[in-house]
Computed example of a mutant assay.
Amino acid sequence: MPQKAASSPSYAFPQDLLDAQASLNATQASYEQYIQSPDPDDEQRDAEFARYRAELLRLSIEVVVHPFWSTLEQGTVVAARMALKHVHDSAGGQGQP
């Protein structure tokens, strides 16, 4: 008898958490693109690195300390965080992993 594949759980991520994760993803992508671009002068580069680091830190904190995580059962937070990281990869990106 064939076995059913395990389905991944769905999470009802709040919109502000989805938005913060999308901003974090976009900022990370912009940062990675910037570091691969031709070198601007050192002062400009240092300022941009500092700006990116500050924004990445701010967005990371916003995602990590969001109250949503405290609503989950113990032992499910890591799976939910991984689902959130990839929620925008799925078709539609509507909060379903």
Rank of each mutant, 00 (worst) to 15 (best):
I35R: 15
D39M: 13
E73G: 00
Q94W: 09
H66R: 15
D16Q: 07
S7E: 15
V78S: 03
A29G: 01
A5Q: 14
F13L: 06
E32Y: 10
S8N: 09
F49H: 15
H66A: 10
Q28V: 08
S8Q: 13
L24E: 08
Y11W: 14
R51N: 06
A50R: 09
Q96I: 14
L72Q: 04
E73K: 08
S90W: 06
T71H: 00
M82K: 15
A54Q: 13
R51T: 05
L57A: 13
S37A: 15
A83S: 12
Q28M: 09
A83W: 05
A54D: 13
Q36F: 03
D19Y: 09
V63P: 00
S30E: 10
K85P: 03
Q44N: 01
S37G: 13
S7T: 10
S60A: 12
W69Q: 02
L57I: 07
Q94G: 11
S10E: 05
I35P: 01
E55T: 12
A79E: 07
H88K: 07
P40R: 07
Y11P: 01
Q44A: 14
G95Y: 10
S37Y: 03
V63L: 08
L59M: 03
S60Q: 14
R51Q: 13
W69D: 07
F13S: 02
S60F: 06
A54F: 01
S90R: 10
V78D: 12
L59V: 08
A12F: 08
Q21S: 08
Y52T: 00
A12T: 12
S30I: 03
A26S: 11
A91T: 11
E55W: 04
L57C: 02
K85R: 10
S30Q: 04
R58G: 06
T27C: 12
A20D: 09
G92P: 03
M82Q: 13
S90K: 09
A12H: 09
A26R: 00
S30L: 05
P40A: 11
K4F: 09
A6T: 15
L18P: 04
R58M: 06
P9S: 08
A26T: 07
K85M: 12
P2G: 12
